Simulated scan of single mutants.
Amino acid sequence: MSISQFRAVGLPLMNLVLLRGMPILQQLHLEERLLRTSSDNWCIINDGTNDRNIVMGVSGKPAELLKINSVLQDKVAVIRRFSGGGTVIVDHGTVFVTFICNKHALPDVQPYPKPIMRWSSLLYREVFQDAGDFSLRENDYVFGNRKFGGNAQSITKARWIHHTSFLWEYDTSNMGYLKIPSRAPEYRKERGHLDFLCRMKDYLPRSNFIDGTIHALGSHFSVKQMKIEAIESPLNTEFIPTSRLLTKQELEEAAFDLQLKSVSQLA
Rank of each mutant, 00 (worst) to 15 (best):
residue 251 L to N: 03
residue 61 K to R: 12
residue 139 N to I: 00
residue 87 T to F: 07
residue 254 A to D: 11
residue 14 M to Y: 00
residue 177 Y to A: 12
residue 159 R to Y: 13
residue 112 Y to Q: 11
residue 124 Y to W: 15
residue 38 S to A: 06
residue 73 Q to D: 14
residue 189 K to Q: 13
residue 53 N to I: 05
residue 166 F to E: 04
residue 58 V to P: 05
residue 153 Q to G: 07
residue 123 L to F: 03
residue 102 N to A: 12
residue 195 D to L: 11
residue 59 S to D: 14
residue 196 F to N: 01
residue 237 T to Y: 00
residue 237 T to I: 02
residue 74 D to E: 12
residue 31 E to R: 07
residue 20 R to A: 14
residue 260 L to I: 01
residue 20 R to W: 04
residue 229 E to V: 11
residue 127 V to E: 02
residue 49 T to M: 05
residue 189 K to T: 02
residue 33 R to L: 11
residue 204 L to D: 01
residue 200 M to T: 06
residue 149 G to C: 14
residue 259 Q to P: 14
residue 181 P to A: 05
residue 128 F to N: 03
residue 215 H to I: 01
residue 23 P to Y: 01
residue 31 E to V: 14
residue 227 K to Y: 06
residue 79 I to T: 06
residue 187 Y to R: 03
residue 242 T to C: 12
residue 180 I to C: 12
residue 187 Y to T: 01
residue 186 E to M: 15
residue 136 L to Q: 05
residue 37 T to A: 14
residue 200 M to Y: 02
residue 32 E to W: 09
residue 213 T to K: 06
residue 2 S to M: 08
residue 196 F to M: 02
residue 2 S to W: 09
residue 193 H to E: 08
residue 97 V to P: 03
residue 201 K to R: 14
residue 172 T to R: 15
residue 57 G to R: 07
residue 189 K to N: 10
residue 37 T to P: 11
residue 123 L to D: 05
residue 151 N to P: 05
residue 82 F to L: 12
residue 262 S to E: 12
residue 223 V to F: 02
residue 195 D to S: 10
residue 139 N to Q: 02
residue 238 E to K: 09
residue 191 R to I: 00
residue 3 I to E: 04
residue 213 T to Y: 14
residue 181 P to C: 02
residue 22 M to Q: 13
residue 249 Q to V: 10
residue 226 M to Y: 05
residue 86 G to H: 08
residue 6 F to E: 00
residue 15 N to E: 05
residue 159 R to K: 15
residue 27 Q to E: 15
residue 220 H to L: 04
residue 249 Q to M: 07
residue 175 M to E: 09
residue 165 S to R: 10
residue 93 G to M: 11
residue 213 T to C: 11
residue 159 R to W: 11
